[in-house]
């Protein structure tokens, strides 16, 4: 009886106000109160509509194909280019890795052990949904824990372009990717576009900590006497990121400006070479030793 009365009481404008109050309260709840359930609810709502988003992505590919990153050339040249990029990546990865290993013997032991048992596997995943509310937001991919995807795994596009990290919310058949532009900071080194000179120590190339500007680029203050110019390629050199991300390309320097307060330093702006919204599929590197 009282329930019926309550339903009658909670109708009309009272119901509207009640719903608005609930919305306000939920909006103002702290992260710790929301995180345990809202992400799961969102995933439950999204999952039945993955076929629709997949169809939408397919149509998007047909209607507005991603912009070509490189000039169209013959297949042989493209294959060679890919091979060169792969070898250059391996080369830079090895150089950066050895430079880090030289710093401390303890690190050398730890890392050499890790390398000895390295068991990195790669999973290809299709991009099934983008954040509809903002450009450069979170991206959903159709690979999850059933495919071996783990939180924090690096995500690559075009072979050696670091695109982001898998978030800590990994579903059975899907996961969210946090774009590199949304990470708080990324350590990197700046190399000429044609690659580094093997005779020059790695430390001679300028290092920078890239921070997002909010305009789809990164900025960093670089205190280096070395030459800084537009076109330099930024490669990941960040201990906080998984080893498979080391040496991968992240962006290209688009501007170099002096800093009046610090005459020896310069402020650079780095633009991403490609973004997650430009591609239909990504590669996720999974280090088994982290599982």
């Amino acid at each position: 009886m009282s329930a019926t009365r309550f339903v009658q009481f909670l109708s009309g404008k009272r119901l509207d106000w009640s719903l608005a109050c609930v919305a306000i309260v939920i909006s103002m709840l702290p992260v710790s109160a929301l995180k345990p359930w809202t992400n799961d609810v969102a995933r439950l709502v999204l999952v039945p509509f993955v076929p629709v988003t997949h169809l939408g992505m397919f149509l998007r590919e047909r209607i507005r194909p991603p912009q070509a990153i490189f000039d169209p050339r013959s297949p042989e040249t493209i294959a060679l280019d890919n091979e060169v990029a792969r070898l250059r990546l391996l080369y830079e990865q090895t150089r950066l890795s050895s430079a880090q290993l030289e710093q401390t013997i303890q690190a050398l032991r730890a890392v050499s052990t890790r390398i000895g048992s390295a068991n990195t596997t790669f999973v290809e995943a299709a991009v099934v949904a983008l954040d509809p509310s903002r450009v450069g937001g979170v991206v959903q991919v159709n690979a999850g824990s059933r495919h071996g995807v783990i939180p924090g795994a690096p995500v690559f596009i075009e072979g050696d372009l670091f695109a982001g990290l898998i978030s800590d919310e990994v579903g059975s058949f899907g996961a969210a990717v946090i774009p590199a532009l949304r990470l708080p900071s990324i350590g990197c080194r700046l190399y000429p576009a044609e690659g580094s000179d093997p005779r020059v120590p790695v430390q001679n190339y300028a290092g920078a900590v890239l921070k997002p500007t909010g305009r789809g680029t990164w900025t960093a203050d670089v205190a280096s006497t070395g030459e800084l110019s537009v076109g330099l390629v930024a490669r990941v050199a960040d201990d906080r990121l998984p080893r498979s991300a080391l040496g991968t390309r992240i962006g290209r320097v688009v501007s170099v400006e002096p800093i009046e307060q610090v005459p020896l330093a310069r402020r650079i702006e780095v633009a991403p070479i490609a973004g997650l919204s430009d591609v239909a599929s990504v590669i996720i590197a999974i280090d088994r030793s982290q599982q």
Partner: peptide, 11 residues
Amino acid sequence: GTLLVVPGPRV
């Protein structure tokens, strides 16, 4: 670097 869904502001 983690994700959060906040149901309410757009409501």
